[in-house]
Structures are given as C-alpha cells and as structure tokens.
Nucleic acid binder design. Structure first.
Lengths: 189, 189
DNA sequence: CAGGTTAACCTAATGGCATTAGGTTTTGTC
DNA sequence: GACAAAACCTAATGCCATTAGGTTAACCTG
C-alpha cells in the first residue's frame, strides 16, 4: 500500500474542489477522503477535525481573494482602482460561488480567519488612500465599500436576484454609488 | 401519553427558538423534538424533512422581516422612508443575528422562499416610488439598496467588523450614500 | 546497509443524526 | 359506543465524525 503523500494543503485543495463541484454542503471528511484516496480517519493526521478544515477553507478563500484583488488594483488609483476592485471581487464570486458562500459561515473570532480577512481589508484601505481618506474616515469608507461589494456578491452567489434586469448595469450603478460617496467624504482639497 | 398538539407552525417556532439560543448549526430534528417533547420521527408528520424545515425557517424570517420593515416605512416617504427601512433592517438583524445567518443558505429557487423574498423586495420598491423611480431604474435602485443593507447586516451578524470605530456612524454614512444615489438616479423633475 | 524512530496510514468501534417502516393510542365523529 | 383519521411511538438502517489502537512505509543514524 503506497503512501498517498497528503499534506494539510492538499486536503484543503481537495476540499475546495469538492465545494466547487458539489456545493458547500458536500464538504464532508468522508468525501474528501474518497477524493484523496485515503481512509477517512487518516485525514485527522493533517487536519484537527471538520470544523478546522472549514476554517482552513475560509482562510484560503480569503487569502486567494486578497491576492487577486490586490493584483487587480495594482497600478491603479482613484475611481479606476475602486472600479477594478469591485470588478475583481465580483469576478471571483462568479468563478467560485460555492466557495464564497462557505466563508461567511465561519466565526470571525478565529485568529487565522480574522487575519485573512484583515488582509482583504488592507487592500480596500489601500485603494482609499487615493481619496485622501485616513484614520476613522477611512475605516468608515472601507466598511461602506466592503458591505456593498459583499452584499451584492453574496446575493448574486445565492441566486438572490430573480428579475431579468441586467446585472452588469446594476453593478455599475453600485460602483458609481460608492465612488460618489468616497469623493464626497474625502477631505476638501 | 398525552398528545403534544404540534403543528407545522409550532415546529418552526421551536426551530427559531433553537436557532436564537444556540445558533443556526444547532438546528437538528433531534433538538427540535427534544424541545417540543416529542420523539424525533414524530416531527415528520408536520415537516417533510430537515431541508424543508430549514426552508420554512427562511420563509418565516423573510416574512417577519417584511412585516417589520413594512411597518417601519409606513407613513414615511423619501429619504425618511429609506432611513427608516435601513434602521429597521439592522434592528432585526441585531435582534436575531442567528436567524438572519440562516436565510442565505437557502436556495432561492424554492417557490416559497422566493415569494417571501419577493415580498421584501416589494417593500423596497414601495420606498423607491418616492423618488419617482419606476421600471428598470427602480429595479436597479432596489438592488443597490438591498445589496447595501444586506451586506452590512450580514457582516455585522457574522462579527465581520473587528475595528473599534463606531458602527452607528458607519451605518449612517452607508444610508447617506444610498440616499444620494437614489436622488441622483431619479428622473429630472 | 542494518536498525530504529517517526509519522502516515489502516481497521474497528462508538455515538449522533436523519430517515423509513410499521405498530399503537388518542381524538373527533357518526 | 364504534370507527376512521391522524398524531404519536419504538425499532431499525445507514451515513457521518471522531477516537483507539495497531501496521507499515520512509527517513535518519551509525
């Protein structure tokens, strides 16, 4: 019996693939074990339990998003950066809707998840420096941006928009709304 | 052995109480049965299965919200109505965070859930008539409002705002952002 | 390259849960 | 007072997470 050569990262990879293919509910240790060609209890070598695997998945999704959004924003500033951030956010969610749905179910008080979320927040804050926003004003602005992008994304991922109106148009208007708000709350120049 | 006198509604009541007390994950048929003083299989008389119970819970939460938000908006118009809608939305989520977290996990394609969600949408659309928004413009505006309110609410319910900045201030700025957007997208008078 | 340690993997067992099958008792009705 | 319907029960099945206790592959040390 040859060794499978698993690792924590490989288990998380399998979990993500499973979520992409069969939805967040399908993430069970039994299914991950079957996919990785290993008996279920063997997974406990690499992962403390199912709850931790879920946490690791959330963490991975957040860091992946941070990376992609960071790349999308790079070299851009002001309204352009904000628009790029929004588009990259939505693109990620449309590419991996089930993954995105799996994140909010995790407790934010877990240090690893919290720090991954903080990384995303940093990207948002970086974009806001282009508006001269710092300190508390930047935090409030970042919350507006995050709530807006996340709200649209989670509704879309859950199939929450039933009507036939074009979603690209809705999203563009959403971006415009945020941009106007950022300009207005910026300190007078 | 006296009869418990259950009904579908009573089962949903127990499910909601359970969610409020112990979180959305704690919703199991075994726990509902214990709480209602009945053996687990007896619940199948009133509910098809666990998935349906979850759906009924989501439906109930949406109709409750619709009722409360509708009441909050009644007799108000324009910016005042929008602000009242937002505040009532957040108040509901803060009162029942676990319930709110239980809703998005439900498939929107279920007719009962979808129609409950549509009821909420109607309240939002009603508020928008004060801005002269109709047709597609109203739909896009309603999506902006919904995404914004839901995004903030779900982040707050999940403990997603870690920083010490005042959340009331953030929320007020969020409302202002939406109001400005609604005014701007209204047809010229 | 022999011997030994580590760690990845296994099988077996436990307990919780959802669900189904098939009886029994209560309740209301004629 | 009997009967039919519906609410409830116990028993049984199967899937899942988790724990316990071996086994064996791989690596390291001399």
């Amino acid at each position: 019996m040859p060794r499978a050569g698993l690792s924590t990262a490989a288990v998380v990879d399998a979990a993500l693939a499973l979520i992409d293919e069969r939805g967040a509910d399908a993430l069970t240790l039994a299914a991950v074990a079957a996919r990785t060609g290993v008996a279920t209890p063997s997974l406990y070598v690499h992962v403390r339990n199912l709850a931790e695997l879920r946490r690791l998945v959330a963490q991975r999704v957040l860091t992946d998003m941070t990376e992609q959004l960071g790349a999308a924003v790079m070299g851009r500033g002001g309204d352009d950066a904000v628009a790029a951030l929004f588009r990259a956010w939505r693109a990620y969610v449309l590419a991996y809707p089930a993954r995105y749905a799996a994140v909010p179910a995790q407790p934010r008080d877990e240090p690893a998840v919290a720090s991954a979320a903080a990384g995303l927040m940093d990207v948002v804050l970086a974009v806001l420096t282009g508006y001269g926003l710092t300190g508390s004003a930047a935090i409030h602005a970042a919350r507006r941006l995050r709530a807006t992008a996340h709200g649209f994304a989670s509704l879309e991922a859950a199939g929450g928009f039933g009507l036939p109106e074009d979603l690209d148009t809705s999203y563009q208007q959403l971006i415009d709304m945020v941009v106007v708000s950022l300009r207005t709350s910026a300190p007078a120049t």
